[in-house]
Computed example of a mutant assay.
Amino acid sequence: MARYAGKVTDEVWCFSKPEQRVQWPYNKWYNAHIKKVIRYGYVRVYWDRAINELRTLEKLKAEEHDPVTVRLDDGDRAVLGRVLKAGVETLMVFLDRISTQVEAEAFCEKAGIPPEDLIDLLGKIYRYLPFGAQMRQLVTEDDPAAAYLGQLASYKLGHSLALLDAGRTRAGRVRLVEEVGIPEDVLLDLVRRADLSRLHLMGGGMIRQAWALGYKGLAALQKATPEDYYARCVAYYDEVGKGKPFDFTAGAVASHLARMREAVAIVEE
């Protein structure tokens, strides 16, 4: 890895190629993909890692049953080593230090990190962080909870990560019930959906299906047996008149539930 010797052109600090339709200069990309996620308190707690620990990993997603992997190569570990030598010991502090292109340029110059190597590592960190989804994607139109999504959106809680941050504690939900005017039971139901959206492979379709199967939240999925889950899925597919997905197997069900059991509970019930 060549040592970074000074400022370079803005093209190097871009997350897209010149010929691509949508351009992602550093500040725009960082704000949209990193800053909007790490602003939430629970993300800063549960997704933080020691830089020294990251240097020892081959992949950021290391759970046995999680097929979503973000592999780290020798170049990434070299960058992390320079980050550590620059006096930064945790991932969240590192991300805070490079929140703008100006800050990133200064940090790279100090630490001797080529900008393109930092850009590559940030792309992997983005895939490690939770994605979440719009709350409207997690609820069917005929669900009673759907009637309250507009109220959530008006309080800037239309995204699952935002709602989870505001409502994952009992005190937070008490405050939201008073401020937003959503019934307590409906709010908890929506927070449970938002909670699942932080997990890899749990998109809107999987979450809506979990509710249709009667598994309303992480705790319910963690208690489910593969046999019962499989049987409920078969009955569900028959009821809605859809054939079983090609990847719907007993092994896939077992791996899915294993991922649920490995997930850390962060919602206070």
Rank of each mutant, 00 (worst) to 15 (best):
Y42Q: 02
A86L: 05
D48G: 01
Y40E: 04
S99T: 11
D96K: 10
V93G: 02
D66R: 06
Q101N: 13
L122Q: 02
M92C: 06
A104Q: 07
K61A: 08
I125E: 05
E64T: 13
K85W: 01
T56K: 15
L121T: 02
G123W: 03
F131M: 13
K85R: 08
D120Q: 09
Y128T: 11
H65L: 11
D74R: 12
Y40D: 03
L72N: 06
Y126R: 14
I51Q: 03
R77V: 04
R55S: 05
Y128V: 11
V88Q: 01
A62K: 13
P114C: 02
G41S: 06
F131W: 11
K124T: 10
V79P: 09
F131S: 15
K110E: 07
A78F: 11
F107D: 02
W47I: 02
F94C: 04
E103P: 01
V88H: 01
L84Q: 11
L118H: 09
D74M: 12
N52S: 15
E103K: 11
F94W: 11
Y126V: 13
A78D: 15
L60D: 11
I113F: 00
T100R: 08
R55F: 03
V45I: 14
D96H: 10
L84S: 08
A78Q: 12
V45L: 09
L84F: 07
G87S: 05
D76R: 12
D48S: 03
E109H: 07
L84P: 01
A106Q: 07
L129H: 00
A50P: 01
T100F: 10
R44K: 12
E58H: 14
A86F: 03
L122T: 02
L72D: 06
P67R: 07
F131H: 13
E116N: 08
S99Q: 14
D48Q: 01
E64M: 12
K36S: 15
E63V: 07
D48F: 00
T56C: 08
L80K: 10
L60P: 07
R97M: 11
L121R: 01
L121M: 02
K36W: 10
D117L: 10
Y128N: 08
K61V: 13
G41N: 03
P67L: 07
V43N: 00
K124L: 09
G87F: 07
L60S: 09
A50N: 08
P115K: 05
R39P: 01
Y126Q: 14
K59D: 12
E53K: 15
L129G: 00
V43R: 00
D66Y: 04
E64A: 14
D74F: 07
I125A: 06
I125N: 07
K36H: 13
T90E: 06
T90H: 05
D120P: 01
R49M: 08
D48T: 00
G75T: 12
L122V: 03
E63A: 15
I98Q: 14
R44I: 00
E89M: 09
Y46N: 11
A78T: 11
W47K: 04
